[in-house]
């Protein structure tokens, strides 16, 4: 009887250890930022920042002080309102496309005012910003905006924000800024 009990305890211990080892997240997974999903039109709040998508549109070309930028795809422009919560911070944005590909904000929009990737968010102060992505048009519908601190620090908050439900309008003529 004692032997059976001992074997049962041992078996349980081995099973528990196996379950722990199988479900134990690796270092890369364990130290990811904590991503909160935000529905379209809602305000998202992370530990160091809050943000809201105010609107979005497409531009076939960007009109910049240094000249016009054209693309084989399109430029997706998101209008955002963001603020710091407890500490001044900068933000970075990625567009998670419909295919799952990840697009960083384009470096070709240099010279545009109110760029998200060059602005500082201050606690208690709303900032109106734009995030511009250059990407294939079929990556837009079904995609989402990922807002995070630069370099995605481990265990920090990030927001995966659904865009507005209405499709983005296309601005055929470059808008002068």
């Amino acid at each position: 009887m004692n032997l059976v009990r001992t074997m049962a305890i041992l078996l349980f211990a081995v099973a528990a250890l196996g379950a722990m080892m199988l479900t134990n997240p690796g270092r890369d997974r364990a130290f990811q930022p904590m991503v909160a999903r935000i529905a379209a039109g809602d305000q998202g709040q992370a530990r160091l920042f809050s943000a809201r998508i105010d609107g979005w549109h497409l531009e076939p070309a960007l009109s910049l002080p240094s000249g016009e930028r054209t693309s084989e795809g399109v430029f997706l422009v998101l209008d955002l309102t963001a603020a710091g919560t407890t500490e001044s911070t900068t933000l970075a944005a990625d567009w998670i496309g419909a295919s799952g590909r990840r697009y960083a904000t384009t470096a070709r929009a240099e010279g545009l005012p109110r760029r998200l990737d060059t602005a500082w968010m201050q606690p208690g102060l709303d900032s109106e910003l734009t995030a511009t992505f250059e990407l294939p048009e079929d990556e837009i519908m079904g995609g989402a905006l990922l807002l995070h601190l630069p370099r995605m620090p481990a265990l920090e908050g990030a927001l995966l924000m659904a865009p507005p439900q209405t499709p983005p309008a296309i601005r055929l003529a470059p808008v002068s800024r």
């Binding site: 710091g84 001044s88 060059t118 500082w120 201050q122 606690p123």
Partner: peptide, 15 residues
């Protein structure tokens, strides 16, 4: 720092 524990860093951007 303000009285609510918020911290403001010096502006180092375009502004």
């Amino acid at each position: 720092r303000d009285g609510r524990g918020r911290r403001f860093l010096p502006l180092s951007d375009e502004l």
